[in-house]
Amino acid sequence: MRVGYFVSETVTNLRRNLLMTIAAISTVAISLLLLGGVQILGIVVRNVTSTIESKVEISTYLRDNATQGEIQELTAQLSQMPEVEDVIYISKEEAFEEFKATYESQPEIWETLPRDALPASLRVKLLDPDDTEEVAARIEGAPGVSDVRFGGEVIKRLLRVNALLRTIALVMSIVLMVAAAALIANTIRLAIYARREEIGIMKLVGATNWFIRIPFIMEGIFAALVGAIVSGAVVVGLNTFLFERIGESFIFLGPVFEFSGAELGGVLLLLVGVGCLVGVIGSTMALRRFLEV
C-alpha cells in the first residue's frame, strides 16, 4: 500500500508540473548525451590509435630496385642508432600477407592485386616515440629508400585534439548537469508548494520526515532517469544507424567505429548512474531549502 501511495503521489506531482518536468528531463538528456559523446569519442580515439600504423614505429619503404647490399647496410646503420630498439625486414610477400589478413573479410580488395604490389619495408621500432621525427629525417634520402612514414605525430596530435574535445564536452556537460539539477529542484519546489497544505497536515498527524520526502525524491529521480534513458536511446541509435554504417562504408578506416557490447553497456550504465545522481542532488537541494520537516 505504501509503495502504491508513493507511486501515485509521484505521478500526480509530475503531471501537475508537466512543462517543468519536460524541461528538466530534456536538460538531463542533453547533458548526459554530451557525457555519452565524450565516452564514445574516447573509444573511437582508442580504436584509431591502435589502428594507425603502430605507435612507435617508422615504416621505411624500400625502392623496388634497391639492392640486397643497400638493404643490409641500411639495416646495420639503423640497428646501431642508440634510439632504435629493433629493425624488422618485411618482404613484399609478407606485406601482401599482412594486408590480406587485415582485410580478410573483404576479399575484393586484395583478390585482384598482384602479390608483389606492395613495397618491401624496414619496420623500425624506437625506444622513445619522441625521437620519431629525428630518426625519420635521418633515414630519409638514404640509398634504396623510397618513403618514410610514421604515425607518432598524427597520434600525438589526435590525442591532443581528443583531450581538448573531452575537456570542452565535459565542462559543458557539467554545466548542463548543474542546470538540470537546478531545474529538477525547481520542479520539486513547485510540487512542494502545490502540496503545502497536505504536507502541513502530514506533519500535524505525525507522518515521518522520510514518508513526506520520498514522493518528492522519487519525482526527481524519475525525471533524471527518463532523461538518462532518452540519452541512452540516442547513443544506441547513433551506434546502430550511424556508426555501423560509417564503418561499413569506409572500410579503410578500420574498426574505428566498432564498439563491443561491454563498451556500449558501460557507457549506458554511466549515463543512468550519473542521471540518478543528478536527480538525487536536485531533489535534495529542493528538500533542504523548501521542505523543512
Binding site: 500500500m1 501511495y5 497536505e198 497536515i201 502530514m202 498527524v205 505525525g206 513526506i212
Partner: peptide, 11 residues
C-alpha cells in the same frame, strides 16, 4: 483516512 495513511497504517 489521510491522517492514518500517512503514518503508515494498513488499508
Amino acid at each position: 483516512a489521510f491522517g492514518l495513511e500517512v503514518i503508515g497504517r494498513p488499508r
